[in-house]
Nucleic acid binder design. Structure first.
Lengths: 117, 117
DNA sequence: CAGAATCCCCTTGGATACTG
DNA sequence: CAGTATCCAAGGGGATTCTG
């Protein structure tokens, strides 16, 4: 019936939205990297390398590039010796904060429920 | 200073929580699959195959297994001919609803901001 | 319908070494 | 410090076919 089909269409739109989000956030490390930058506000390459346990510099470099292309983070080369680079969230990137916070909360919740016991 | 170190530790905990969440939700399709099941409440294998555009039955099968192991979804074999299988979120899986909704919203937002124009 | 099984390509991503 | 370059292995994942 008409009502059902409209519902179907709405879900399709939502499925597409999810896919759009996933396109940007995909990759083993993207969320973790964003989280690091988000929590500390400004973060340098080597800091992130430390925050995200297990990541290699090659992967970090690659993921940062993609995040920059998607306009979620901003890269600034600082005039120091040796060179340091500062990463920050863009205004658009900051809109991910809600998702990051929710995922953090859920991680705690999940650990309590499943892992921790 | 002490204050700073405490802050550092808190962030480490949060980074760990994010990693825990990502461990469970990782994979190209997991979120999309959960979204499909979540929106429709009950969903059959072939339905999900249709909802998640691009996924193959092999991948769907694999991801569903992992989601079941992580206790996010429940699998029920229905007594029909031919056999159909119903997937639903568990109570624990339903706690992901917030994240799913946020990601849906963000997808719309992102499309408006970046993709659509 | 709901998968399991095969085949096979191509990406992901780790380890290591090197550069400005 | 912030990457780049290279090598290489594991497995992610598509297409197709088969089964109960």
């Amino acid at each position: 019936m008409e009502c059902k089909e409209i519902k179907q269409d709405e879900h399709k739109k939502e499925m597409m939205a999810i896919q759009d989000t996933m396109d940007v956030l995909q990759g083993k490390w993207k969320i973790a990297i964003l989280t690091s930058i988000c929590f500390y506000n400004k973060r340098r390459f080597s800091d992130i390398l430390n925050d995200v346990s297990g990541i290699s510099n090659k992967m970090l470099s690659k993921e940062l590039k993609e995040l920059e292309i998607n306009q979620l983070i901003k890269r600034t080369i600082l005039d120091t010796h040796p060179v340091t680079v500062r990463y920050q969230l863009t205004e658009h990137g900051k809109t991910l904060r809600t998702i990051i916070d929710n995922m953090t909360d859920w991680g705690f919740h999940h650990r309590k429920k499943i892992i921790g016991k």
